[in-house]
Amino acid sequence: MTPEDIAKLIVRTSLKDRAAFDLLYRQTSAKLFGVCLRVLSDRGEAEEALQEVFVKVWTKADRFAISELSPMSWLIAVARNHAIDRIRARRRPAADIDAALDVADPAPGPEAMAVAGGEADRIHRCLEELEQDRADAIRGAYLKGESYVELAERHGVPLNTMRTWLRRSLIRLRECLER
């Protein structure tokens, strides 16, 4: 499916078209389940999160119209936000995310490639301009939804140092992407 097709399905979903919603689910749930699994690293919880994500998609599909994101990016943002909120509400993070799930370095699917397009190369090139540990922190935080607390612990630096590092790195990343 092209991004235009996905956009149509979201718009039709906002008009409460169930057939469109079903098709949207078929086309995108595997990716969004991948998001929930990666962030939550618990199958049962990821399944619950995926339910909630699609309930949100059904009730808030009209929001897509006022965002300027591509349809897949919008859906992924809904899923990531939900999964990250969920993991933050948890007391303790699951023991070891990558050990619990064998999804550490998946090959991007065709749809992901289509969405990312040439932009993917650029962001990776820009991340390479950063110090390796900071680029890793950004990638890890994005994919797993790690918090400053967790990142600071893993990198063995005080929380404020981590925050300063990451903020500066993000600003440099933006400058590179806008170059």
Binding site: Q51, S67, A77, A116, H124, L143, L173
Partner: peptide, 24 residues
Amino acid sequence: QGRLSPLAAGYAEVEAPVSVKAAI
């Protein structure tokens, strides 16, 4: 969201069990 969205290529696609859609 737009700037960082290419990183989402790192999420694997995983088929969800049929029970999820039924629950939705």
